[in-house]
Structures are given as structure tokens and as C-alpha cells.
Design a protein around this nucleic acid. Structure first.
Length: 555
RNA sequence: GCGCCUGUAGCUCAACAGGAUAGAGCAACGGACUUCUAAUCCGUAGGUUCGGGGUUCGAGUCCCUGCAGGCGCGCCA
């Protein structure tokens, strides 16, 4: 692509210059090429001269001149270069370069935007991982959308991605789940029970109890209580997990691995992890408990891994889990967490370091919490109390695509107000339709053409010089950016860049569409414009694919 | 009290790891459908980027500080 080409040329020039002036090339930063906001500032611009001025000990503008004079242009794509302002180098590119973009897109079709930067490296993205003690709610939906799109963007960038869901199916909350079901079960037999406040209050617990009564009758009245609770927690968790799985699938998400916490205990992984830490000298005993010396690795204090009563902490199994991830040989491990877990970042990273792994290979994305509102009024959400708006409800009310878009059109670290009423009311205003509509429009256009006996034949080529309108050029420029937008999305783990890019592209298209006709008697022009709109169609389809949003052919 | 995140147009949010003149959508107002989909388009209006210092060629972005909101600070999970 053009931007990559210019960067290569610039780098070569800088290297040459550095050699001449005796500057260590290692000092030089990578060249940053950007598309200026203002068109008179060129098609591309770089601040390379300003950034490296101090290494060369020369004024930026003077350095810029020398960079330009040494810059190669083997493909003769550059039309003009100017030095502007404090030392920007602005590039103007020949129309031919933009026209080539259209040919590339039409030829590459669904592959346009994909790259092999990841070189097949294995990446694991773990997200949602909600406890199987209740249905997914809106907050989980945000993590789901963000995690999934990060995974999709990485795939498009050439990584070998594995999506994973960590099931907390061991420990105290499982016990509470089982007990909650048990109490509801007893109630179904007319027993008077005291249902504790901090047990799971949701109606789904009663549903599970009723199902057990229907299938097993009074079987559980005759067994040991602890056995009943244990079996009920297994059954309940399985039941709830099935629904979670279904919800996620309907939300467009397929996992490669459902990883059970319980399996860690079955393999004694947790004990082994603690032993390993101990062998490395990072575990000590104090007041009957065993502590991990995490403060030696940047955590604010040490953490308990084995309590004085002998029980392993949640943190201990989390360490074992992360050790397992690295043992599976991933080159990068990405955790998508709710921001309420941010306090755990330093201790997990400490654990990774203590176990001898490269902590930089663990990236933790904190997704800020969703603040749920109903008609402007805050709604408290609590799985325990059974007060929540489920992801399922949201999907039913506003649809999968609109819901995903709401989650994806903001940075992960922005706090999100989600007003269910507003989401319903304004679902037709959702920007997702703006984008989908553009795709449907183009599809419709090709249908009309076909109906009129016009076959959009791309093998014959077209005279793309006829695309001389400013808007046509602008569209070509935006289309050219797509691969780097996808790559940035993946590299910075920031899905929101994609929807904003799409909005840009689509608004120019709609405007263009309203002013100009594609199908017309002017055959050569029509052929050329077919290239343009087909390219838009391809990019929309590919981008929406990465967002996990449908690209409808009709609306 | 300490830590993390946030503060940008009336509202919801962007601003491509410091770039040139801070941009979109919604809401408001005024216009455009006998023509490839009006879920669209064109136009108007809307800003001391929370306050105060600093760093430099250049700050919404980085540092310090104050204020406001969210979250977290257990031998809970």
C-alpha cells in the first residue's frame, strides 16, 4: 500500500543520512506517517524531521530538505513534496496511486484488509469468563464484544487466535449456588426454609430447582445434604453455562476453549504452581498461612495463596491458570477483564514474573463497567439479588448488531452509560444502520444494474482516470487506509477505531451517492464507478465482518 | 486515607501514543424524494477540552497540583 511504500522510502533516506552524518540509526524513531486533517497539507505527512532534529543537531526544516533530497521513489508515485510549518514533510501522491487501490481491492476482495503481520503467532484471548451462577448481563456484553473483536482483528492481521472462556466452577460461589438451588428445591416440597440474603435470589434458581423436582422427584430429600448440594451445584452450573454459551453464540461469539477451574485442581496444578514458587524462594509462611512474595515483583503487598485453614485462595488458582496458559505455548496472552478487577493486575503480573515468564506477553485489557440506566434512572445490578438486565434482553430489544455497536463505538476505558429505554427508542438511530444501509444500497445498485442487463464485469478493467471528482478521490484515499486501520485495531487492541473509520467512509459515500449517478448511459464512466462502489462494498463487508456485524444486502 | 479509570458542544462519544485550524452522531432550526433504497443528503447553530501551574518548536494528549464522578483496596470469590 501507498503508506507502507512511503515509509520504506523515508526510512531508506533517513538511514542514508544517518550514515553520512555519523548518527546512530538505532536512536531514530520509527517514521510516523499520517493523513493530515487538512487536505492542503498533502495526502500524507510525516514529522520525521522534527522528531529526529535533535539527533542530527540541525533545525527541522533544514533536515527535512536533506531527507527529501535523498528520498527514493522507484515506483514514481510521488507527485510533489513540500516542507511546511515547523518542519512537516507533506507528500502529494499521483492519482494513479489511488486508482491502483481500487484495482487491488477488487482483486483481493475478502482478503483486502488482511495481512500477515502476526506471522501465525499464537495468541489467546480470554474474555467474559463470568461465573456460571447466573445469566450474562449487559456488562458482560461489553466485554464479550470487545474481546471478540480484538480476536477477530488479530485473526485478520495474521495471528493464530484462540478464544477462551474461564469457568469458575470451583470454590465458594459454586457451593452457594448449589445451596441456593437446594433451598428452592425444599420449598417446592412445602418445606419452610430460611433463604439467606446473600444467596442467589434470581428466578432462574427456582426454575432449576423445579426442573430437578420434575426429573428426579424427591430423590434429594433422601440423600446426604452435602451430596445434594454438590450435585445441584454441578447440575445448576451446567445448566447456566449452557445458557451462557447460547447467549454468546447468538451474540456472534464462538469459543475455541472452555477452560474449567475445577480441572486445575484435578490435575493438582494449583499445588504444583505453589510448589514451584516455593522452590524459587517466593513463598513463606506467616501466621499459619502461606504467602507469595508478590511485593518483590511490583505488587504493593504480599498475597496469601494458602489460607491458615488449608484452603487455596482464588488467587492461587488464578496463578495456576495463567501458568497453564503460558505452558500451552501462546506467544501472547490477552485477558479482557472488567475494570472492577484492576487491583489484580499487579499481582497476576507479579506471579507471571516470579514463574519465569515474560510479563510483557500478558496483556490485560480493562473494560470499564457499564452503568445501567432505565429512563435516566440508575439501576443497580447484582447477580446475587437477581437484579440485572440480561444480555439476552438487550439482544431481544435492540438486536445483536445495534448492541454490539453500542459497546464497540467507545474506548474500553471510557465509562459507559447504557440506558435501556434510550437504546430501544433510538435503536433506529444507531450508527450501525448508517453503515449497513450503505452496504445494502450498493448491493441494490448492482441488482438494478443486472436487471437492466448491465453486467459489472471487472475482468475487462476500466479507465479509472475518469474518477476525477474530489469526492471520488477522497473515497479512494479512505479505502486505502483500511488495512492500516485493521492493523492498528489489532496492535493497540482498540476495536473502536473500526466503527469510527466506517462512519468516515460511509458518510462520504452517502453524500456522493446523493449527488452522482453510478448507473448511466456514459458507459466508460459507469464502468469506472463500478470499481469505486464495488471497492466500498468490499471494505464495508470486510470491516463489518471484523466487527461481527451483519452486512445486509437489503434493508 | 491509598491506588486505577474518567472529565472534550445541551446529550452520547472521537481525535490515529505530542502535531498544523479539536471532529462525528443525537437533540434544535431551515431546506431536498416522478431519477441507482429519504434508515439518505444539503445548510445553520453549538467549545476557556474541569480549574491552576509546568515541560518544548507545538499540549485535549506528557509531568505536578486542586476539584468532581466511577471502581478497587480481605487468610472473600
Amino acid at each position: 500500500m501507498i503508506d507502507e511504500y512511503l515509509v520504506r522510502c523515508l526510512n531508506q533516506s533517513l538511514k542514508e543520512l544517518a550514515a553520512e552524518k555519523g548518527v546512530d540509526p538505532a536512536q531514530l524513531r520509527d517514521v510516523a506517517l499520517e493523513v493530515p486533517k487538512i487536505e492542503t497539507h498533502g495526502d500524507f505527512a510525516t514529522n520525521a524531521a522534527m522528531v529526529s532534529a535533535r539527533f542530527f543537531k540541525e533545525p527541522p526544516r533544514k533536515l527535512a530538505e536533506q531527507i527529501i533530497s535523498r528520498m527514493p521513489d522507484p515506483e514514481k508515485l510521488v507527485d510533489g513534496i513540500e516542507i511546511a510549518g515547523p518542519g512537516f514533510i507533506n507528500f502529494f501522491v499521483k492519482d494513479k496511486a489511488w486508482q491502483n487501490v481500487l484495482k487491488t481491492i477488487v482483486n483481493m476482495a475478502e482478503d483486502y484488509g488482511r495481512s500477515n503481520r502476526g506471522e501465525g503467532k499464537r495468541v489467546q484471548v480470554e474474555f467474559v469468563s463470568a461465573n456460571p451462577t447466573g445469566p450474562l448481563h449487559v456488562g458482560h456484553g461489553r466485554g464479550a464484544a470487545v474481546g471478540d473483536v480484538i480476536a477477530r482483528a488479530l485473526e485478520a492481521t495474521g495471528y493464530d487466535v484462540s478464544r477462551e472462556y474461564y469457568i469458575n466452577d470451583a470454590g465458594r460461589q459454586m457451593e452457594i449456588l448449589g445451596h441456593s438451588i437446594f433451598l428452592r428445591y425444599l420449598q417446592l416440597f412445602g418445606r419452610e426454609v430460611d433463604f439467606p440474603e446473600d444467596y442467589y435470589q434470581g428466578k432462574y434458581i427456582e426454575d432449576i430447582a423445579r426442573e430437578l423436582k420434575d426429573t428426579k422427584g424427591d430423590y434429594y430429600l433422601g440423600v446426604e445434604e452435602s451430596q445434594a448440594i454438590n450435585e445441584m451445584s454441578m447440575f445448576g452450573a451446567g445448566k447456566i453455562l449452557d445458557e451462557i454459551r447460547q447467549d454468546l453464540e447468538d451474540f456472534g461469539i464462538k469459543y475455541d476453549c472452555w477452560f474449567s477451574e475445577r480441572s486445575l485442581f484435578e490435575k493438582s496444578s494449583v499445588e504444583k504452581t505453589i510448589t514451584e514458587l516455593q522452590e524459587r524462594g517466593y513463598v513463606y509462611e506467616n501466621e499459619g498461612a502461606r504467602w507469595f512474595r508478590s511485593s518483590e515483583f511490583g505488587d504493593e503487598k504480599d498475597r496469601v495463596v494458602v489460607r491458615s485453614n488449608g484452603a487455596l485462595t482464588y488467587f492461587a488458582s488464578d496463578l495456576a491458570y495463567h501458568k497453564d496458559k503460558f505452558e500451552r505455548g501462546f506467544n501472547m496472552v490477552i485477558d479482557v477483564w472488567g475494570a472492577d478487577h484492576h487491583g489484580y493486575v499487579p499481582r497476576i503480573k507479579a506471579g507471571i514474573k516470579a514463574l519465569g515468564y515474560d510479563e510483557k506477553k500478558l496483556q490485560i485489557i480493562l473494560v470499564q463497567l457499564v452503568n445501567l440506566l432505565r429512563a435516566g434512572q440508575p439501576v443497580a445490578m447484582s447477580t446475587r439479588k437477581g437484579e440485572f438486565v440480561t444480555l439476552r434482553e438487550v439482544m431481544d430489544e435492540v438486536g445483536k448488531d445495534a448492541a454490539r455497536y453500542i459497546f464497540l463505538t467507545r474506548r474500553s476505558d471510557s465509562h459507559l452509560d447504557f440506558d435501556l429505554e434510550l437504546a430501544k427508542e433510538r435503536s433506529s438511530d444507531n450508527p450501525v444502520y448508517y453503515v449497513q444501509y450503505a452496504h445494502a444500497r450498493i448491493c441494490s445498485m448492482f441488482r438494478v444494474a443486472e436487471k437492466n442487463g448491465i453486467e459489472p464485469d471487472f475482468s475487462a478493467g476500466a479507465d479509472l482516470n475518469l474518477l476525477e471528482l474530489p469526492q471520488e478521490k477522497k473515497i479512494m484515499k479512505i479505502l486505502a487506509q483500511f488495512p492500516s486501520v485493521v492493523a492498528d485495531c489489532a496492535m493497540f487492541l482498540e476495536p473502536h477505531r473500526l466503527p469510527y473509520y466506517l462512519d468516515d467512509l460511509v458518510s462520504v459515500f452517502h453524500s456522493y451517492y446523493n449527488k452522482n449517478r453510478v448507473i448511466s448511459d456514459n458507459e466508460p464512466l459507469m464502468r469506472a464507478r463500478f470499481y469505486l462502489v464495488r471497492s466500498i462494498q468490499v471494505v464495508l463487508k470486510n470491516a463489518l465482518d471484523i466487527l461481527g456485524v451483519d452486512a445486509p444486502e437489503k434493508m
